[in-house]
Design a protein around this nucleic acid. Structure first.
Lengths: 218, 218
DNA sequence: TCGCTTTATGCGAACGATCATTCTCGGTCA
DNA sequence: TGACCGAGAATGATCGTTCGCATAAAGCGA
């Protein structure tokens, strides 16, 4: 009788599917829904993707899906936050590089690479468009990015204080402009247009160098 | 009985609405619909804005509106093309400036200014997001911009040939990158974030100068 | 370990609302 | 008179969401 306990059987073969607690399984299901939702949002946009499509992609019924997310808006918020937080993490590596220009260029290139490989550019464009009219999404973005922005500001200010760099404009103006430029690169997925990573990095280095250590006069 | 004809009453006051031919009136109505649609698309996005909302904004019934546009998709295409063409025109002034750096910076600043004043940034973001998943919209964008891009390429090539500039990377890579950066600036509406036009122009000039006339070595 | 209750999970039909679009018909011009 | 225009109800489809019900798992006193 005890031999029929399939839970024990599963454990002896692979521990990939069997020995999961209630809470673990729940997290797994949430992840499953989010993966499906992300795929649908990339394909059709937030408003364009229907809950039925997301259900089909997740292999789940509407009744089941709504056990994990109370509404479509909550799903959009969750996807947005996860995506923004993921992007933000890439930049944290920058703060350990003592050379500001090199640190920034390296981090930005990692971001470009990640955007290209993950195919998340359409999702990012969608998030950006949505955040301009949906204040809740805008706040979600701001929250997820605020830590990196603060760290970035401090990173730059330290470099200014020690005389390593002398930005062409005040940091208050510099930060938003760099972020804007970065977003442009993120949305456009240049490698997909045939631009080599080498070209991107070269031009980015020249640009950042000029912004942070401008020539005396013109 | 004739005194009840309010159309004739209007003529006696101002000639702004009365003496129009059938075709002229049709163009006027089309413009009215497009203005309303643009407003709704800015507010709610392409998918989020309903035809009923657009009808209400235009002060028109669905039956009337569908006399001028066969479908919502056609309206999206029309709005997209008009917006892209409008943006493209701003850049044509650049090609008459013999100084490439100054020409580009001046045109780009005009674009930033226009984006800020017209409040079209959300519409642009929406267009950009939509063009990544809707091939028809993508083609509409490409068509509207192709002339300016070609002219821009020629403008730069001429400057290269006469030794005025020496871009940090090949023009084939330079063009998409500059466009990407420009889109980032367009979406972010920096003046709305408190960044002054002076700061934007200064950093832009430093950047463009560095991209087109890079320092010898690093 | 056994039965019993409680809770969590999943399905899929069904809901009312809203969607883009069409139809019908009366009015207005050339 | 005939082509065009406009209103607004109506259409079928699809939307996000809910409901009822069945099953599986966890909790628990004995």
């Amino acid at each position: 009788m005890a031999g029929l306990d399939f839970v024990m059987d599963g454990e002896s073969a692979v521990d990939a599917d069997a020995p999961v607690s209630r809470a673990e399984r729940r997290d797994l299901q949430i992840q499953r829904v989010m993966d499906a939702a992300k795929k649908c949002f990339v394909r059709s946009g937030f408003q364009g993707a229907s809950m039925h499509q997301i259900c089909a992609e997740a292999g789940m019924s509407p009744g089941a899906l709504y056990r994990y997310f109370p509404s479509k808006e909550a799903m959009i918020a969750a996807i947005t936050e996860a995506d923004r937080r993921n992007d933000a993490e890439i930049f944290t590596a920058m703060f350990e590089n003592p050379d500001v220009v090199d640190g920034f260029v390296t981090a930005a290139m990692a971001h470009v690479r990640h955007m290209h490989e993950s195919g998340n550019a359409p999702l990012f464009a969608e998030i950006r468009a949505e955040s301009m009219r949906n204040e809740a999404i805008d706040r979600t973005c701001a929250m997820a990015m605020s830590e990196v922005q603060q760290a970035f500001g401090k990173y730059l200010q330290d470099a200014v204080d020690r005389g390593d760099i002398a930005p062409a404009v005040e940091l208050d103006a510099f930060m938003p402009m760099v972020i804007a430029i970065g977003e442009g690169l993120a949305i456009n997925d240049l490698p997909a247009q045939g631009v080599t990573f080498e070209s991107i990095e070269k031009l980015m280095r020249v640009t950042v160098e000029a912004m942070l250590r401008p020539r005396r006069k013109t």
